[in-house]
């Protein structure tokens, strides 16, 4: 399977944060959810992918090309939606389209009109009068109107109401019917992803913890509950993180089959949601490792 995004051993340091040896592959034709808590490094990686910032070391290839030699070709094939608005408030949607559309050689006015009508966006109203949801629809309509192969979305649903978030995800589901399109969708609102995601990449403190198929995660990850006596040095390795509770322990495992084999019916195993995986994967003082 062809990778549309390839990061190899990428490092980027700031005074209070760093990405450490990040390697990431995003496969063509799939929806990849890029998850992690606030400040984990999702936006930094997206900025690296979009060439807004440069890595200190490592290699970045997008659609088989690199920015040093093919910057404009790469950007032609990327559609982007950011959480913040990138719109000139005093311009109308018509003006905005006029200044953006000639930037893309593949701009398709018919598709733009189709999305504009679908999203019920007025053409001659100043953009500063649009609601946050409408502004996000403008960004999405622009991102979808130039036959982009790769759509990169950095927390586009943050701050939006649940109804709009659902609508937004339904639109992306329609987009994914085209098997040549790839979406990298960063979010910390994990419910948004459940119905659509093919791959999940979890980032924590500037490091990729895992990048797996969502069905694989569903099969492998589980929350295990049992009595404290069951825990020992030999059993510890089956758990990613263990939390002691009043009645025993609660732990995350990435190997449900093995845990079932070892502990049998002496523990209760439940499917782990993405939220639970993210919670147990965090490195802080509240979830103490055994």
């Amino acid at each position: 399977m062809e990778n549309v995004i390839e990061l190899e051993q990428v490092n980027k340091s700031y005074p209070y944060f760093q990405l450490k040896d990040v390697s990431l592959q995003v496969k063509r034709g799939f929806f990849t959810g890029f998850i992690g808590p606030n400040g984990a490094g999702k936006s930094t990686i997206i900025k690296l992918i979009l060439h807004l910032i440069r890595p200190d070391s490592g290699r970045i290839r997008i659609l088989g090309m690199d920015y040093q030699n093919n910057e404009k070709e790469i950007k032609e094939k990327i559609g982007f939606v950011y959480s913040e608005e990138l719109l000139y408030g005093d311009l109308t949607l018509q003006d905005m389209k006029r200044i953006i559309s000639p930037s893309y050689s593949n701009w398709d006015d018919a598709i733009f009109q189709q999305y504009r009508e679908q999203f019920e966006l007025p053409l001659r109203q100043k953009l500063k009068t649009f609601s946050k949801g409408m502004k996000m629809k403008v960004s999405l309509a622009i991102a979808l109107s130039h036959h982009a192969e790769l759509l990169i979305m950095d927390e586009p649903t943050a701050g939006l109401d649940p109804i709009f978030r659902r609508e937004f995800m339904e639109i992306l589901q329609e987009v994914m019917l085209d098997e040549n399109k790839t979406i990298l969708f960063s979010t910390h609102i994990l419910n948004d992803l459940t119905s659509i995601v093919d791959y999940i990449t979890l980032i924590q403190n500037g490091q990729i913890l895992f990048s797996k198929e969502s069905i694989e995660i569903e099969a492998d990850y589980g929350i295990v509950r049992g009595e404290s006596e069951l825990l020992g040095r030999d059993t510890q390795r089956y758990f990613t993180k263990v939390k002691k509770t009043a009645n025993g322990f609660e732990a995350l495992t990435d190997n449900v089959a093995e845990v079932e084999k070892i502990f049998g019916h002496s523990v209760i195993i439940e499917k782990a949601s993405l939220e639970e995986i993210m919670y147990y994967s965090r490195e802080d003082k509240h979830a103490s490792a055994y």
């Binding site: 979009l50 950007k75 990138l86 000139y88």
Partner: peptide, 18 residues
Amino acid sequence: YFEEDANGHKLWNSLPFT
């Protein structure tokens, strides 16, 4: 001013321009 207000650096650097 208009450019800063619209976060134009991010917008135009994400579009196909060097």
